[in-house]
Design a protein around this nucleic acid. Structure first.
Length: 276
DNA sequence: CTGAAGACCTGCCTGC
DNA sequence: TGCAGGCAGGTCTTCA
């Protein structure tokens, strides 16, 4: 499900429902997702301070308690992970693996059919040194992601540009959909060797990645309420993609048929008329 | 070192 | 209707 805009949408939807709430109990219906879950019972009696995001990770910050230092629960949604806030008496749904009971009668539920999601617990002040974070590149919507950075990452590389912009050590948050959409807007063919793209075109790529992700966040932001409601029907799928999933249909600019190829095991979509 | 391919899981859609 | 096959928004490990 989630690329950066979707995770950001989840974050902004959860924050007001969780901030200031206390965890009364945690029920795990499964001890392991992609990796073994941490001991979530450590969060009992702690109060949620806020919900942040880094890359595609959700960060739930908790106040310390007694001798316990401030803790941060780190959660990656994988492909199909979803959080919902439901009344505690709501019955357990299919693939619902973890339930956090809150002091306001609600519960935070984690559901994940494919179980590619994973979680970890860290002291808040040591979060930056966590192995999951030390390997990450800059956030695409900050100034740290710029032409100089991307040009250095691409220099001399023969790997296709699509693989490079999806590499989280270069820039985080660009998943399979937004990689295709960004390359279309930049007019760059997804198989082009990263090291053979001019600085002018890389500068354009930096800008369109920002633009595409920002627009998607704005679109997702309007459907937060859908997300937290019981049926969990995600409304933010309704983005209008220009190439993703449109193979065989006409390009919106030049009318040539959109093509689909496989790169690194993932589908890529592009227009052979507009992208070189 | 780089880049490609396989692995992890389940559900859903398509076509025979 | 039933079933095989392909596909899915992520990331880590293994192999050439």
């Amino acid at each position: 499900m989630p690329e950066l805009p979707e995770v950001e949408t989840v974050r902004s939807g959860l924050e007001p429902l969780l901030s200031g709430r206390q965890i009364r109990s945690v029920i795990c219906h499964r001890s392991s997702l992609r990796y073994p879950l941490p001991d979530l019972s450590l969060l009992t009696d702690l109060t949620v301070k806020g919900v942040r995001r880094r890359s595609k990770y959700l960060l739930f910050d908790f106040d310390g308690f007694n001798s316990l230092l401030a803790q941060t629960l780190v959660w990656h949604l994988g492909m199909t992970g979803q959080f919902h806030v439901l009344p505690q008496q709501a019955k357990i749904g299919a693939h619902e693996h973890v339930c956090f009971n809150l002091n306001d009668g609600q519960s935070l539920r984690y559901r994940d059919a494919r179980r590619f999601g994973y979680a970890g617990l860290s002291q808040t002040e040591e979060l930056e040194e966590h192995a999951w974070f030390t390997v990450l590149g800059p956030e695409p919507l900050t100034d740290d992601f710029n032409l100089a950075h991307l040009a250095e990452a691409c220099a001399g590389r023969k790997a296709p540009i699509k693989n490079v912009i999806m590499d989280a050590s270069i820039v985080v948050g660009v998943g399979n959909i937004y990689a295709s959409e960004s390359l279309f807007r930049a007019g760059i063919h997804p198989t082009r060797a990263a090291g053979k793209i001019s600085a002018r075109r890389l500068a354009l790529l930096v800008n369109v990645i920002r633009q595409v992700l920002s627009e998607a966040i704005a679109a997702g932001g309007s459907t937060i309420s859908d997300f937290v409601h019981a049926d969990g029907k995600p409304g933010y799928f309704a983005h209008s993609f220009q190439v993703y999933g449109r193979q065989g249909e006409g390009c919106l600019h030049c009318s040539k048929a959109i093509k689909r190829i496989i790169q690194a095991g993932r589908s890529s979509f592009y227009c052979s008329g507009c992208q070189h």
